[in-house]
Simulated scan of single mutants.
Amino acid sequence: MTYEEVPWHLDPDERQLIPKSARRKIASTYQAAVPACISSASLSVPEALSARVSELLVGLARFDEEQAARGYDLPALLLRSESAASSQIERLTSSVRNVALAELTDDAPANARIAQGNVAAMRTALSLPPEVSKQRICAVHEALIAPTGETFGGQIRDEQVWVGGTPYSPHGALFVPPVPQRIDACLDDLVIFAQRDDVNAIAKAAIVHAQFETIHPFIDGNGRTGRVLLHRVLCQEGVLRRSTLPVSAGLLHDVDAYMAAIRAYQQGDPLPIVQSLVGALELALVIGQRVATAIDGVMEGWRASITERTGSAIWRLPQLLAERPVVTASLVAERLDITPRAATNLVKRACEYGMLRPLGSRRRGDFYQSDELLDLLEEISSMPGIRRVLASRP
Rank of each mutant, 00 (worst) to 15 (best):
P217T: 05
D296V: 07
V96K: 05
D254Y: 06
K25Y: 00
G223C: 02
S21Q: 01
A143Q: 05
E47N: 10
L92R: 04
F152N: 11
P19D: 00
E334L: 08
S276M: 06
R303C: 07
D188C: 09
R387I: 12
R123T: 08
A84Q: 15
L285C: 15
G268N: 11
T124M: 13
L77Q: 09
T29G: 00
Q67S: 13
I380Q: 11
I183F: 08
E308S: 15
A125I: 03
S276A: 14
S381H: 10
A146W: 04
C235Q: 09
V278S: 08
R393P: 05
W315G: 13
G153M: 08
V298P: 03
R227P: 03
V161W: 01
S305D: 07
S127C: 10
A329W: 12
L331Y: 08
R52V: 09
T307E: 11
E47H: 07
V34D: 01
V140F: 04
L285P: 05
V45Y: 09
L74V: 15
L376G: 03
L321E: 07
I338D: 05
L57R: 15
L101W: 04
S81Q: 08
R241M: 12
T124A: 13
Y353M: 10
R309P: 00
H171Y: 02
S381K: 12
L281A: 08
G288K: 11
K25M: 00
L245N: 05
V228G: 02
T29Q: 05
L104H: 07
D269F: 11
L43V: 12
A264N: 06
A343G: 10
G154I: 09
H231R: 09
A143I: 10
A120D: 10
P7E: 02
V208A: 06
A280G: 06
L346A: 03
G288R: 14
A264K: 04
R364V: 07
K204W: 03
L229G: 02
A304E: 10
I219F: 02
Q369A: 15
R113K: 14
S87M: 04
A257V: 03
L57Y: 09
A249M: 07
Y3G: 00
P19L: 02
G165D: 00
R182A: 04
P170V: 00
L321M: 13
K20F: 04
I338V: 14
K134G: 15
R15V: 03
M122K: 06
C37Q: 05
A304Q: 10
Q67V: 13
Y72S: 09
S81I: 15
P272A: 06
T2E: 02
Q319Y: 06
A264M: 07
D337C: 06
D337T: 14
L331Q: 13
S133A: 14
G149M: 10
G354P: 09
A284R: 08
Q16A: 01
S54T: 13
V6G: 07
G311V: 14
P75K: 12
A194K: 07
R52F: 08
R364L: 04
R136M: 10
A260S: 10
S50E: 13
L320S: 09
I219E: 04
E379L: 15
S361R: 13
